[in-house]
Write a protein that binds this DNA or RNA. Structure first.
Length: 354
DNA sequence: AATCCGGGGCA
DNA sequence: TGCCCAGGATT
Protein backbone atom coordinates (compact mmCIF):
# COMPACT_ATOMS: atom_id res chain seq x y z
CA UNK A 1 0.00 0.00 0.00
CA UNK A 2 2.35 2.85 1.06
CA UNK A 3 4.77 3.16 -1.83
CA UNK A 4 7.34 5.23 0.05
CA UNK A 5 7.58 3.01 3.09
CA UNK A 6 11.37 2.54 2.98
CA UNK A 7 11.88 6.26 2.79
CA UNK A 8 9.43 6.76 5.66
CA UNK A 9 11.18 4.44 8.09
CA UNK A 10 14.69 5.44 7.01
CA UNK A 11 13.96 9.13 7.43
CA UNK A 12 12.35 8.47 10.78
CA UNK A 13 15.38 6.56 12.06
CA UNK A 14 17.73 9.20 10.72
CA UNK A 15 15.75 11.92 12.47
CA UNK A 16 15.78 9.87 15.66
CA UNK A 17 19.52 9.31 15.67
CA UNK A 18 20.06 13.05 15.44
CA UNK A 19 17.31 14.21 17.80
CA UNK A 20 16.71 11.56 20.45
CA UNK A 21 16.85 12.36 24.12
CA UNK A 22 19.39 10.49 26.17
CA UNK A 23 17.34 8.51 28.65
CA UNK A 24 18.43 5.95 31.25
CA UNK A 25 16.69 3.07 29.47
CA UNK A 26 18.12 3.90 26.08
CA UNK A 27 21.26 2.08 25.07
CA UNK A 28 20.41 -1.02 27.07
CA UNK A 29 18.68 -4.24 26.11
CA UNK A 30 18.32 -5.42 29.67
CA UNK A 31 14.73 -6.72 29.63
CA UNK A 32 14.20 -5.82 33.28
CA UNK A 33 15.08 -2.20 32.60
CA UNK A 34 13.09 -2.05 29.37
CA UNK A 35 10.07 -3.75 30.92
CA UNK A 36 10.13 -1.43 33.94
CA UNK A 37 10.39 1.68 31.78
CA UNK A 38 7.62 0.56 29.45
CA UNK A 39 5.20 -0.18 32.28
CA UNK A 40 5.92 3.19 33.86
CA UNK A 41 5.49 5.08 30.63
CA UNK A 42 2.05 3.66 29.88
CA UNK A 43 -0.19 6.72 29.59
CA UNK A 44 2.57 8.66 31.32
CA UNK A 45 4.93 11.31 30.00
CA UNK A 46 8.65 10.66 30.10
CA UNK A 47 9.18 13.68 32.35
CA UNK A 48 6.73 12.32 34.89
CA UNK A 49 7.94 8.72 34.81
CA UNK A 50 11.67 9.37 34.78
CA UNK A 51 12.21 10.06 38.50
CA UNK A 52 10.18 6.95 39.36
CA UNK A 53 12.29 4.84 37.02
CA UNK A 54 15.45 6.04 38.74
CA UNK A 55 13.99 5.33 42.19
CA UNK A 56 12.93 1.82 41.23
CA UNK A 57 16.29 0.92 39.66
CA UNK A 58 18.06 2.24 42.74
CA UNK A 59 15.82 0.41 45.21
CA UNK A 60 15.41 -2.73 43.14
CA UNK A 61 18.42 -3.25 40.85
CA UNK A 62 17.19 -6.66 39.71
CA UNK A 63 13.86 -8.31 39.06
CA UNK A 64 14.58 -10.68 41.94
CA UNK A 65 14.95 -7.80 44.38
CA UNK A 66 11.69 -6.30 43.16
CA UNK A 67 10.08 -9.71 43.55
CA UNK A 68 11.18 -10.00 47.16
CA UNK A 69 9.87 -6.57 48.17
CA UNK A 70 6.59 -6.28 50.09
CA UNK A 71 3.71 -5.09 47.93
CA UNK A 72 3.17 -2.10 50.23
CA UNK A 73 6.74 -0.99 49.60
CA UNK A 74 6.26 -1.17 45.84
CA UNK A 75 3.03 0.82 46.08
CA UNK A 76 4.73 3.40 48.28
CA UNK A 77 7.49 3.86 45.72
CA UNK A 78 4.85 4.12 42.99
CA UNK A 79 2.86 6.70 44.98
CA UNK A 80 1.91 9.69 42.84
CA UNK A 81 2.40 8.03 39.47
CA UNK A 82 -1.22 6.90 39.16
CA UNK A 83 -2.83 3.86 37.58
CA UNK A 84 -1.83 1.78 40.57
CA UNK A 85 -2.81 -1.52 38.98
CA UNK A 86 0.43 -1.09 37.06
CA UNK A 87 2.38 -1.29 40.31
CA UNK A 88 0.45 -4.32 41.54
CA UNK A 89 0.86 -6.10 38.20
CA UNK A 90 4.52 -5.08 38.08
CA UNK A 91 5.12 -6.73 41.42
CA UNK A 92 3.13 -9.85 40.52
CA UNK A 93 5.05 -10.22 37.27
CA UNK A 94 8.38 -9.73 39.04
CA UNK A 95 7.48 -12.56 41.41
CA UNK A 96 6.39 -14.76 38.52
CA UNK A 97 9.52 -14.12 36.45
CA UNK A 98 11.73 -14.55 39.50
CA UNK A 99 10.22 -17.81 40.69
CA UNK A 100 8.63 -19.59 37.72
CA UNK A 101 11.05 -18.36 35.06
CA UNK A 102 14.18 -18.25 37.24
CA UNK A 103 14.60 -14.54 36.61
CA UNK A 104 14.62 -14.80 32.82
CA UNK A 105 12.06 -12.74 30.91
CA UNK A 106 10.13 -14.35 28.02
CA UNK A 107 11.75 -13.75 24.66
CA UNK A 108 8.84 -13.69 22.21
CA UNK A 109 5.89 -11.37 21.65
CA UNK A 110 3.44 -14.17 22.38
CA UNK A 111 5.08 -15.18 25.66
CA UNK A 112 5.62 -11.59 26.79
CA UNK A 113 1.91 -10.99 26.27
CA UNK A 114 1.18 -13.52 29.02
CA UNK A 115 2.75 -11.32 31.67
CA UNK A 116 0.36 -9.35 33.89
CA UNK A 117 0.23 -5.71 32.87
CA UNK A 118 1.84 -6.42 29.49
CA UNK A 119 -0.44 -5.84 26.52
CA UNK A 120 0.10 -5.51 22.79
CA UNK A 121 2.12 -2.32 23.03
CA UNK A 122 4.45 -3.40 25.84
CA UNK A 123 5.04 -6.90 24.45
CA UNK A 124 5.96 -5.37 21.09
CA UNK A 125 8.25 -2.81 22.71
CA UNK A 126 10.17 -5.40 24.73
CA UNK A 127 10.34 -7.89 21.85
CA UNK A 128 11.69 -5.30 19.42
CA UNK A 129 14.03 -3.42 21.73
CA UNK A 130 15.47 -6.37 23.64
CA UNK A 131 15.31 -9.18 21.10
CA UNK A 132 15.31 -7.40 17.74
CA UNK A 133 11.98 -8.92 16.75
CA UNK A 134 9.89 -7.12 14.07
CA UNK A 135 6.92 -6.32 16.30
CA UNK A 136 5.45 -2.87 15.68
CA UNK A 137 4.36 -0.76 18.63
CA UNK A 138 1.20 1.33 18.46
CA UNK A 139 0.94 3.96 21.15
CA UNK A 140 -0.57 7.45 21.18
CA UNK A 141 2.40 8.85 19.29
CA UNK A 142 2.23 6.18 16.59
CA UNK A 143 -1.49 6.80 16.08
CA UNK A 144 -0.80 10.47 15.54
CA UNK A 145 2.16 10.10 13.20
CA UNK A 146 0.59 7.39 11.05
CA UNK A 147 -2.85 9.00 10.87
CA UNK A 148 -1.29 12.25 9.69
CA UNK A 149 1.37 10.89 7.37
CA UNK A 150 -1.03 8.50 5.64
CA UNK A 151 -4.11 10.71 6.03
CA UNK A 152 -6.20 8.16 7.89
CA UNK A 153 -9.32 9.40 9.63
CA UNK A 154 -10.52 6.15 11.19
CA UNK A 155 -11.08 6.89 14.89
CA UNK A 156 -8.05 5.63 16.82
CA UNK A 157 -10.15 4.52 19.77
CA UNK A 158 -12.52 2.37 17.73
CA UNK A 159 -11.75 -1.31 17.35
CA UNK A 160 -11.63 -0.87 13.57
CA UNK A 161 -9.06 1.88 14.04
CA UNK A 162 -6.94 -0.15 16.41
CA UNK A 163 -6.83 -3.02 13.91
CA UNK A 164 -6.11 -0.76 10.96
CA UNK A 165 -3.29 1.13 12.63
CA UNK A 166 -1.71 -2.01 14.03
CA UNK A 167 -1.70 -3.53 10.56
CA UNK A 168 -0.24 -0.39 9.02
CA UNK A 169 2.40 -0.09 11.73
CA UNK A 170 3.42 -3.67 11.09
CA UNK A 171 3.63 -2.91 7.38
CA UNK A 172 5.92 0.11 7.64
CA UNK A 173 8.23 -1.10 10.40
CA UNK A 174 11.91 -1.37 9.53
CA UNK A 175 12.48 -5.09 10.07
CA UNK A 176 16.26 -4.65 10.10
CA UNK A 177 16.23 -2.51 13.23
CA UNK A 178 12.73 -2.77 14.68
CA UNK A 179 13.70 -1.57 18.16
CA UNK A 180 15.29 1.59 16.86
CA UNK A 181 12.42 2.16 14.43
CA UNK A 182 9.78 1.75 17.15
CA UNK A 183 11.52 4.21 19.42
CA UNK A 184 12.06 6.55 16.49
CA UNK A 185 8.40 6.85 15.54
CA UNK A 186 7.39 7.33 19.17
CA UNK A 187 10.06 9.94 19.79
CA UNK A 188 9.08 11.72 16.60
CA UNK A 189 5.47 11.83 17.75
CA UNK A 190 6.42 12.98 21.22
CA UNK A 191 8.87 15.66 20.17
CA UNK A 192 7.98 16.86 16.68
CA UNK A 193 4.63 15.60 15.39
CA UNK A 194 2.98 16.90 18.56
CA UNK A 195 -0.79 17.10 19.13
CA UNK A 196 -1.08 20.89 19.04
CA UNK A 197 0.57 23.23 16.53
CA UNK A 198 3.30 20.97 15.15
CA UNK A 199 6.05 22.74 13.24
CA UNK A 200 5.07 21.26 9.86
CA UNK A 201 7.02 23.87 7.91
CA UNK A 202 10.26 22.38 9.17
CA UNK A 203 9.15 18.74 9.16
CA UNK A 204 11.21 16.11 7.34
CA UNK A 205 7.94 14.80 5.89
CA UNK A 206 6.40 18.05 4.66
CA UNK A 207 6.76 16.85 1.07
CA UNK A 208 5.00 13.54 1.66
CA UNK A 209 2.64 13.91 4.65
CA UNK A 210 -0.95 13.45 3.49
CA UNK A 211 -2.41 15.54 6.29
CA UNK A 212 -0.05 18.42 5.55
CA UNK A 213 -0.80 18.26 1.83
CA UNK A 214 -4.54 18.44 2.45
CA UNK A 215 -4.26 20.89 5.36
CA UNK A 216 -5.80 18.45 7.83
CA UNK A 217 -3.02 18.16 10.36
CA UNK A 218 -5.10 19.76 13.10
CA UNK A 219 -7.96 17.32 12.44
CA UNK A 220 -5.88 14.17 12.84
CA UNK A 221 -5.91 11.80 14.53
CA UNK A 222 -9.68 11.41 14.93
CA UNK A 223 -10.78 10.29 18.36
CA UNK A 224 -14.28 9.42 19.55
CA UNK A 225 -15.37 11.50 22.50
CA UNK A 226 -15.64 9.79 25.84
CA UNK A 227 -18.57 10.31 28.13
CA UNK A 228 -18.73 13.00 30.79
CA UNK A 229 -16.90 12.49 34.04
CA UNK A 230 -18.74 11.42 37.16
CA UNK A 231 -18.85 13.66 40.23
CA UNK A 232 -18.35 12.09 43.65
CA UNK A 233 -18.51 13.65 47.09
CA UNK A 234 -15.89 12.51 49.56
CA UNK A 235 -15.91 13.27 53.27
CA UNK A 236 -12.68 12.25 54.94
CA UNK A 237 -12.77 11.84 58.71
CA UNK A 238 -9.40 12.91 60.07
CA UNK A 239 -9.16 11.63 63.62
CA UNK A 240 -6.77 13.47 65.91
CA UNK A 241 -6.27 11.77 69.24
CA UNK A 242 -4.82 13.40 72.34
CA UNK A 243 -1.56 11.55 71.80
CA UNK A 244 -1.18 12.74 68.20
CA UNK A 245 -2.46 9.69 66.42
CA UNK A 246 -4.86 9.20 63.55
CA UNK A 247 -6.61 6.42 61.66
CA UNK A 248 -5.80 5.24 58.15
CA UNK A 249 -7.68 2.56 56.28
CA UNK A 250 -6.65 0.54 53.26
CA UNK A 251 -8.94 0.60 50.23
CA UNK A 252 -9.77 -3.00 49.45
CA UNK A 253 -12.89 -2.99 47.30
CA UNK A 254 -13.07 -2.47 43.58
CA UNK A 255 -12.49 0.96 42.13
CA UNK A 256 -9.88 3.66 42.41
CA UNK A 257 -6.76 3.51 44.54
CA UNK A 258 -7.00 -0.20 45.27
CA UNK A 259 -4.73 -1.12 48.22
CA UNK A 260 -3.74 2.48 48.92
CA UNK A 261 -4.43 4.07 52.31
CA UNK A 262 -6.72 6.94 53.25
CA UNK A 263 -8.57 8.43 56.21
CA UNK A 264 -11.96 6.88 56.99
CA UNK A 265 -14.17 7.88 54.08
CA UNK A 266 -17.86 8.71 54.02
CA UNK A 267 -19.06 9.14 50.46
CA UNK A 268 -22.29 11.02 49.86
CA UNK A 269 -24.40 11.80 46.81
CA UNK A 270 -24.23 15.53 47.50
CA UNK A 271 -22.34 17.99 49.63
CA UNK A 272 -23.51 17.59 53.23
CA UNK A 273 -23.61 19.70 56.37
CA UNK A 274 -22.31 18.43 59.67
CA UNK A 275 -25.78 17.63 60.96
CA UNK A 276 -26.61 15.75 57.78
CA UNK A 277 -23.34 13.88 57.99
CA UNK A 278 -24.06 12.82 61.56
CA UNK A 279 -27.33 11.21 60.57
CA UNK A 280 -25.78 8.90 58.00
CA UNK A 281 -25.44 5.19 58.77
CA UNK A 282 -21.79 5.34 57.68
CA UNK A 283 -21.19 8.03 60.29
CA UNK A 284 -22.88 5.95 62.98
CA UNK A 285 -20.61 3.06 62.10
CA UNK A 286 -17.57 5.30 61.99
CA UNK A 287 -18.25 6.76 65.43
CA UNK A 288 -19.64 3.73 67.26
CA UNK A 289 -16.47 2.89 69.17
CA UNK A 290 -15.43 6.46 69.68
CA UNK A 291 -16.11 9.26 72.07
CA UNK A 292 -16.05 12.25 69.80
CA UNK A 293 -15.00 15.46 71.43
CA UNK A 294 -15.40 17.80 68.48
CA UNK A 295 -15.84 17.85 64.72
CA UNK A 296 -14.85 20.76 62.57
CA UNK A 297 -14.81 21.23 58.85
CA UNK A 298 -11.31 21.88 57.53
CA UNK A 299 -12.30 23.15 54.08
CA UNK A 300 -15.71 24.68 53.42
CA UNK A 301 -15.02 24.71 49.70
CA UNK A 302 -14.49 21.17 48.43
CA UNK A 303 -11.10 20.32 47.03
CA UNK A 304 -11.72 19.09 43.50
CA UNK A 305 -9.41 16.21 42.77
CA UNK A 306 -9.63 15.37 39.08
CA UNK A 307 -9.08 11.90 37.76
CA UNK A 308 -9.42 11.14 34.08
CA UNK A 309 -12.89 9.69 34.54
CA UNK A 310 -14.26 11.26 37.73
CA UNK A 311 -14.09 14.41 39.83
CA UNK A 312 -13.77 13.98 43.58
CA UNK A 313 -15.26 16.88 45.54
CA UNK A 314 -13.56 16.41 48.83
CA UNK A 315 -13.99 17.86 52.30
CA UNK A 316 -11.91 16.97 55.31
CA UNK A 317 -13.54 16.78 58.74
CA UNK A 318 -11.27 17.07 61.76
CA UNK A 319 -12.44 14.78 64.56
CA UNK A 320 -10.91 15.01 67.99
CA UNK A 321 -11.43 12.10 70.29
CA UNK A 322 -11.07 11.59 74.03
CA UNK A 323 -11.41 7.88 74.30
CA UNK A 324 -8.71 5.66 72.89
CA UNK A 325 -9.61 4.39 69.43
CA UNK A 326 -8.26 1.13 68.12
CA UNK A 327 -5.61 0.80 65.41
CA UNK A 328 -4.50 4.40 65.49
CA UNK A 329 -1.11 5.20 64.05
CA UNK A 330 1.16 8.10 64.96
CA UNK A 331 0.57 11.07 62.70
CA UNK A 332 4.34 11.19 62.24
CA UNK A 333 4.18 7.81 60.52
CA UNK A 334 1.62 8.60 57.83
CA UNK A 335 4.48 9.02 55.41
CA UNK A 336 5.19 5.29 55.57
CA UNK A 337 1.90 4.47 53.86
CA UNK A 338 1.11 4.65 50.17
CA UNK A 339 -1.64 7.24 49.84
CA UNK A 340 -3.36 8.96 46.90
CA UNK A 341 -2.05 12.38 45.93
CA UNK A 342 -5.28 13.86 47.27
CA UNK A 343 -4.40 12.57 50.75
CA UNK A 344 -0.72 13.39 50.44
CA UNK A 345 -1.54 17.00 49.58
CA UNK A 346 -3.85 17.35 52.57
CA UNK A 347 -1.38 15.76 54.98
CA UNK A 348 1.50 17.96 53.92
CA UNK A 349 -0.68 21.07 54.17
CA UNK A 350 -2.53 20.27 57.37
CA UNK A 351 0.26 18.75 59.41
CA UNK A 352 2.95 21.07 58.10
CA UNK A 353 5.27 21.98 60.92
CA UNK A 354 3.46 19.95 63.55
C1' DA B 1 -17.60 -2.50 22.43
C1' DA B 2 -17.54 0.26 26.33
C1' DT B 3 -15.85 1.39 30.71
C1' DC B 4 -12.65 1.72 34.36
C1' DC B 5 -8.26 3.14 36.12
C1' DG B 6 -4.22 8.77 38.07
C1' DG B 7 -1.99 12.44 37.79
C1' DG B 8 0.18 16.19 35.54
C1' DG B 9 1.31 19.45 31.70
C1' DC B 10 -0.22 22.46 28.24
C1' DA B 11 -2.71 25.92 25.24
C1' DT C 1 -11.65 23.79 30.46
C1' DG C 2 -10.37 20.02 27.40
C1' DC C 3 -6.98 17.10 25.55
C1' DC C 4 -3.16 14.15 25.83
C1' DC C 5 0.37 11.12 27.67
C1' DA C 6 5.81 5.11 25.23
C1' DG C 7 -2.06 1.28 27.66
C1' DG C 8 -4.12 -2.76 30.02
C1' DA C 9 -7.81 -5.17 32.35
C1' DT C 10 -12.46 -5.92 33.06
C1' DT C 11 -17.24 -6.22 31.96
Amino acid sequence: MPKNTPSFSKKLISWYLHNKRELPWRGTKNPYHIWLSEIMLQQTRVAQGLPYYLKFIENYPTVQQLAHAPEDAVLKLWQGLGYYSRARNLHATAKMVSKDLKGVFPKTYKDLLQLKGVGDYTASAIASICYNLPEAVVDGNVYRVLSRYFGISTPINSSAGQKEFKKLAQLVIDTNEPGTYNQAIMEFGARFCVPQNPNCGNCIFNDSCEAYKSNKVSELPVKLKSKAVRKRFFNYMVIISEDEKTLLQQRLGKGIWHKLYEFPLIETSEEVTLSELKKLPQFQKFSENMEIESISLYNETPIVHKLSHQHLLTRFWIVTSKKEVKNLIPISEIFKYAVPVLIENFVSEFFEGS
